[in-house]
Design a protein around this nucleic acid. Structure first.
Lengths: 254, 254
DNA sequence: TCGAATTTGTGCGTATGTATC
DNA sequence: GGATACATACGCACAAATTCG
């Protein structure tokens, strides 16, 4: 009787295996709780808990009154982050796997800018004092009507206030990207640094991205610097961890 | 009676807020189930489920018979991935935040190599036929005695068989990195591509990394190419999403 | 040294609400 | 309306580990 793992995990692992193997294909309905109860001789609570594990891992989503269905977890596409592509208009940086061919998706986005004061972590990244006034812009991107990414950008108002580019998405330099906008006020953005991590989605993020709270998100903290290594802008970007990838090119010298 | 969120989520959110605010500091014990039951007037199952949400999100870990304790989720350090640093010996690519200063950690690793056949996804990344023979090497890295990352590398045996570098971590070129080893057999590794995503940890990964199953992992698929853009090696690397970051430098041309 | 209390982890049975078919 | 199915919630029970008197 060597099986030591808890019952709900055995059920969850078994269902996951059937999904990975392809016995349960994308879109298929997972056996209902009543069926699972019978098959595994377990209680209502136990099978429910097993299904919750699957849902939390992004393997399935429940629909009220209908059933629990296997989710599509195949990557939709990649965001190209390497070299100068990271600042060209967004369309050039996103590729979608449509079958085997990479193509450019329909992109749309919204932005809201507000002036505020720099929170501690942001102040440090921007090299300014905590509480210094900054322009904070929140973006929501869609690719082919699907939520793609959420981003929040911060710029010190000390650099942009009173110029044509104070509001990132207004005026003649709207939608030109960070480099184009800063070039317009005489600041040359020479390089950027991206710090990548991952964490579970919060409830508002889950709603905006169309996933369940707790799902894996890939997080990018990007900071742009001028020629003298002074930070001029920093941003946080989140994408669904299993649906979108970040792509970096690494060129070796010598 | 406007509160519409489920009870277990309200409890989880409340506890999470107290952790984020600092009311519950790292290492502190979360109130026991009995206490939570009293305070929130909820059932055993409900408070247990709330605590499970916290644990799955990496906010806390339970200890049998002792209690549930707030986890340390502060990033330990970063893995520098930019340019040629991505292939120098590992020590040079890892920095640890010790207080405010970045320093180099004590690094250790183990590797096991086996010959096998390329699974579908790996074959595609290596540009070889499914089932072609490859050398598969599994790495476990430790930084200051803590689990850092797990990595699996694949190389076509067609390139290395019969040479001094057949086994990546044996012979005169052991621990020299991909570029050094391939240089020894006349192959110039010119560039690499890294594709970054994130997903929940499986049970074996959780055990190896010292976390709970389902926690967020950051995943890197790296492929090395020679001068003619032919893939020569590919690897999968996973690190704990909230404890380790990946750092990329982006240099703008012009 | 022993035993009782506490606490986590798991499990069972049941009930209610709501949405779909 | 009725059957089905998900989602949440309550009360209870037991094993295993720790703590403390």
């Amino acid at each position: 009787m060597g099986e030591t793992r808890p019952m709900y995990q055995r059920i969850a692992d078994d269902l996951r295996r059937r999904i990975d193997e392809g016995t349960l294909v994308v879109g298929a309905r997972i056996p209902s709780r009543a069926e699972l109860k019978r098959v595994y001789r377990a209680s209502d609570q136990t099978v429910d808990r097993a299904v919750r594990v699957l849902k939390a891992a992004g393997y399935a989503t429940g629909q009220f009154g209908r059933g629990v269905f296997v989710s599509d977890r195949a990557p939709i596409g990649a965001l190209v982050r390497s070299t100068d592509a990271a600042d060209t208009p967004l369309a050039a940086r996103v590729s979608v796997n449509d079958g085997a061919v990479a193509c450019e998706p329909d992109l749309a986005w919204e932005a809201i800018s507000t002036t505020t004061v720099a929170p501690p972590g942001i102040a440090e990244r921007l090299g300014v004092c905590q509480g210094e006034r900054v322009m904070c812009t929140q973006y929501e991107y869609l690719a082919d009507r699907n939520p793609l990414q959420l981003a929040t950008s911060w710029e010190p108002l000390a650099l942009t206030e009173g110029t044509e580019v104070t509001f990132p998405e207004r005026g003649p330099y709207a939608r030109r990207g960070v480099r184009g906008r800063f070039a317009a006020i005489g600041i040359h953005v020479a390089h950027a640094r991206e710090v990548v991590g991952s964490r579970p989605a919060t409830s508002p993020e889950a709603e905006a991205l169309g996933c369940t709270p707790g799902q894996c998100l890939t997080v990018v903290e990007r900071t742009h610097y001028d020629e003298d290594d002074r930070p001029v802008e920093t941003s946080d970007t989140v994408v669904l961890g299993d649906r979108w990838r970040l792509e970096y090119a690494i060129i070796f010298g010598g």
